[in-house]
Design a protein around this nucleic acid. Structure first.
Lengths: 142, 142
DNA sequence: TATTGTTATACTCTATAACTATA
DNA sequence: TATAGTTATAGAGTATAACAATA
């Protein structure tokens, strides 16, 4: 199957295939909740900490603000989030979770924990923690 | 910028952004060679070990065989690879590198080493090796 | 019948440009 | 003038279906 060619040790290959395997494990667990992994990422983002505008959220996720519009539309259509005009700046729309959105977020995060645990199963516990910490440092660039 | 919200510790987020940062570092180094990262991945795959058919290569990279057709077309148009009918099975096309393809592959792999080194710069050397090994085990699922 | 390569087609994801409203 | 949100549109990247050649 994946053999052991030089290409399988390149970071680009490893990041891509780690992502593919994680999606295989996670998406079937999100499906019963009626959401995709990307939609859950938004629920996690907007459900955590002080309310963010769409623009703020887009920057944090590394996506374009026009992409954010479509994603928020999807969640609003499902009744999982609300747009609210920001007090103090009427150009901004703060995105907050509805009760149902909060419920789906909690269930989705439990599904995420399960999928991540399965993905990391081949690693000893300390190695799993070190993997996550190393990725976090690399992504932050410090 | 990337702050320290819960979402930034999810593996899905970390894999995606690690990939984005790597691409930012690598693509400018590939550009002078006239290739993209994906094209270099093919040169690395087909330049390593015994000749592979398009189908074999597609399976190893985790892409569809119809996608492979288009990618090989690109490299063939640039004169970097050749298609050869497989001796013993006239349905198969073995993909091999031209002299120029081999030259570009070598230069590209040096560029990859530089980009990976920059990405992993925040980590101690042992941690970098452990990151790569942990990803490899996770991707192989064992 | 099954597999490999190919083509045509469609779908997903994303970004760019241009617009409205607000600052 | 600049920023936030929106819409329309276009470009990657990818997959599905159907076909020809070969096994």
């Amino acid at each position: 199957m994946s053999s052991d060619l030089a290409v399988t040790w390149r970071l680009g290959y490893l990041f891509k295939h780690a992502q593919l395997r994680l999606a295989e494990l996670a998406e079937p667990r999100y499906a019963p909740l009626g959401i995709t992994g990307r939609q859950l990422a938004l629920l996690t983002l907007f459900g955590d900490g002080p309310p963010l505008s769409q623009q703020d959220g887009a920057v944090r996720l590394g996506i374009d603000r026009t992409t954010m519009v479509a994603l928020v539309d999807e969640l609003e259509d499902k009744g999982l989030v609300r747009r609210e005009v920001a007090p103090g700046d009427r150009r901004k729309r703060l995105v907050t979770l509805t009760g149902e959105g909060e419920r789906v977020r909690a269930a989705g995060e439990e599904a995420t924990r399960q999928a991540e645990a399965l993905l990391l199963e081949p690693l000893a516990e300390g190695d799993a923690d070190r993997l996550r910490a190393a990725l976090h440092r690399v992504v932050r660039g410090e």
